[in-house]
């Protein structure tokens, strides 16, 4: 098999229970099963994770970097969307 024909996969790792899977990088593999195993070998050698997701890169639809202003700048002056205007009681930790 020509290695150029191996598709690219995006790898997501969950580091522990209760946390989200996070994008950690990408790699090449012939199929989904091999992508999982390659991810295990490339990205979890130092106990980084307990769960792996892979998705073929071509299946990801990304926002257009040229649209950045229109996409994201309108949110900049709407600070009232952050819940930072409340006085939190002292007993509430980890907020």
């Amino acid at each position: 098999m020509d290695k150029k024909s191996w598709p690219l996969w995006e790898v997501f790792i969950r580091s522990k229970h209760g946390l989200n899977h996070k994008h950690v990088g990408s790699l090449h593999a012939a199929d989904a099963q091999m992508a999982i195993e390659n991810s295990r070998d490339v990205y979890t050698r130092r106990m980084e994770g307990i769960s792996i997701w892979v998705v073929e890169s071509k299946n990801i639809t990304a926002s257009d970097p040229n649209q950045q202003e229109a996409m994201f700048e309108p949110a900049v002056d709407k600070i009232y969307r952050h819940p930072t205007f409340y006085n939190l009681p002292d007993e509430l930790e980890h907020m």
């Binding site: 191996w6 090449h28 070998d41 490339v42």
Partner: peptide, 12 residues
């Protein structure tokens, strides 16, 4: 290794 991923897999 034939590709980076398998190189690492074998050394693991």
């Amino acid at each position: 290794g034939p590709v980076l991923e398998q190189d690492i897999a074998l050394t693991n």
